[in-house]
Amino acid sequence: MEEEKKRETKNKKEKRNFLKLFAIAGIFAGVPSFVSKFFALVSKNDNENGEEPEGKSGEKYRWGMVIDLDLCTGCGACVIACKIENNIPPTGYTERDRGTEIEWMSLIPAGEDKDYMIPIPCLHCDNPPCTKVCPVGATYINDEGLVVQIWDRCIGCRYCQVSCPYERKFFTWKKPEWPETYLQWLNPDVPTRPKGVVEKCTFCSHRIRKLKERARDEDREIEDKELVRLPACAEVCPTGAITFGNLADPESTVSQLAKSPRAFRLGEHLGTEPKVIYLAKEKRKFISKEV
């Protein structure tokens, strides 16, 4: 018995000593690594310390989209599909509702004469200005390159909204107003929004999640052809101008399309590195404007 006790105390002592050692080692090893990690984090974009930004490499998926402007007819089917898929309420019809549009997928004029419309979702930048400025970390770029927004954390300061060079973030200026019957069709996969938060395109991440779950259940990899028309906008596009896929896979359709000589990205000079790649319209010719 006594021996046992002794052994126990000895064990305890050893444990204590070990802990002490551990603590000291921790201080010596931990603090510098803590500090170095901090600097690594601060200087994240320099890639000096080998720590690459999330979603850039090593990850299996890097979601991206290719929009072929030569195919797009500007019909707006993507806009409607997005609104229905993501439970976005109608804007309203009074002067008061000016500027309260929520359009994750939107049409904006483009071209030299601003004479045709192009669809524009959130561009899911690799180097997004909006995630950097968020004071609470409610918006961030996840491991798969999606720039997402956590509504429960968002405080509604709208800093990300003003920092987005593409105006792709939307603030819920009011509580969504639905006619009672419209509540029936709301998509159960997507929450409706509270008022006072910023929201944005998710590349239909709920569909991605569902697809992943299905693939896991069936014990297989996700195939490219399942992805190409995955988001609601790509799914309906009458011309097939919108293509979705995994940019990390060089064989995927989007990666192939992104190599096109017509490929360009919006606001390239801003260094935001969008993952939505546009394919330019071929040069067109108008005879004259006067009859």
Binding site: G74, G76, I80, T91, G92, R98, E103, S106, L107
Partner: peptide, 13 residues
């Protein structure tokens, strides 16, 4: 309805 205005780059209302 709203899309018809948005296509013209007008506010939805």
């Amino acid at each position: 309805m709203e899309l018809s205005a948005r296509i013209k780059m007008l506010p939805a209302y």
